[in-house]
Design a protein around this nucleic acid. Sequence first.
RNA 1: GGGGAGGUUCCCGAGUGGUCAAAGGGGGCAGACUGUAAAUCUGUUGGCUCAGCCUUCGAAGGUUCAAAUCCUUCUCUCCCCA
Length: 417
Amino acid sequence: MNATLKVLQERGFLKQCSDLEGLSDLMDRERVTFYVGVDPTGKSIHIGHMVPFFAMHHMQNMGHNPIALLGVGTALIGDPSGKSEMRQMLSLEQIQENSRSLKAQIGRVIDFEADGTGQKGRAVMLNNHDWLGPLNYIDFLRDIGSHFSVNRMLTFESYKQRLERGLSFIEFNYQLLQSFDFLTLYREQGCRLQIGGDDQWGNIVAGIELVRRIEGGECFGLTFNLITRSDGHKMGKSEKGAVFLDPEMFSPYDFYQYWRNVNDDDVVKFMKLFTFLPLEEIEGYNSPRVNVNEAKERLAFEQTKIIHGEEEAEKARDAAKAMFGGVGSGEALESLPAVEIEKSLFDEGINVVELFAMTDLCKTNSDARRLITQGGAMVQDQKISDVKQTIDSSWIEEGELILRAGKKRYFRIIITQ
RNA sequence: GGGGAGGUUCCCGAGUGGUCAAAGGGGGCAGACUGUAAAUCUGUUGGCUCAGCCUUCGAAGGUUCAAAUCCUUCUCUCCCCA
């Protein structure tokens, strides 16, 4: 098998390939241009969306040329694959704004600077609105639509399910548009391969067939395992919602903690998929002699480094160590979420319930009251169980207060004049 | 256009005049157990000046001592027929 494919296989990416042997031969012979699509339906992608990009990273490093295709055009429609509900329609402006932030995020693992003269392949980002936008309906129906059989499409699992719940006509067209993307990239960029999550299998195959019918060209499809957690929870979902890459939406500290707390059974799997550590090194963590917690720390650090940079990763790691190791030192505390409160508020003391409600630890007073009643609230490492407790300036140390909700959530209050 | 079924608290989903802030499950939060894991068990899960009060059951009106439950209009969704 081709060396690049072997890497992907060993790291646990591969699920299906339209023609593994053929693709392997092609990749042995030449630098292959390949693409993956991403829908700019939100301001930030979350970690579950990153799998194909990590795969893409390895492929680029081994000399193949990635195209990250922003589905600005298709996002206006919505892909029915794997979705149980109709998607919300977004405005073009919203989508284009989303696209800008996505490119930066994808840039964390794909090198868009590489020009393809070195070992690395050349990477570009394209936008399918460029060719879907100007499409003429009649021409499209005649040239592309004629190649699709409704009977055939209805046999696809993704559509079958949607028939139960309802499927609008424009959503039904998604497959045609995605196939047209592939055709366009084949013609204009010499793209031979489309990769994606396994939920994209049907659409990818449709694209390959379209290229063969119209251009007689041979293209390939490769899908990756949809990542699941061993506890059955959805990958990329945390207590705080989806694990977004945007630090504004999901702080680097929480990001680190998400990986730090993955299931034992998932650590090695995730290291292979979501870090660039060499496989031999990862295997080292597979041994029962190694403490899983060391492995988790490594996973969390590496992953945070890739997405948020080394500095943030170190800060998150130090903060976590300080918090869970016992006493927190001043420096490490800096990456904890914090709020500034005026000193005067503490002159007469403030009720704990209100204090907690001012932080992100509790949404409302009731929420804070519950936390305290149930014994989960702490101020400066002292358990507070009385909702009437007052916190005054005598609690303040070194100009701050550390609040804690439960075992894992901390919040820093900085006292200002 | 005709006929039918529906819109319930974060989600799914009970509830068909007072005993409903609304069953049950999921999810979340907290506690116990631990390893900052999982599983398990327990508690909790609208808001507030919290033994009391206030706002919720698609929207607006109405009937009633009393409505998520009845009536009217509007609105949205789904299904069947054309």
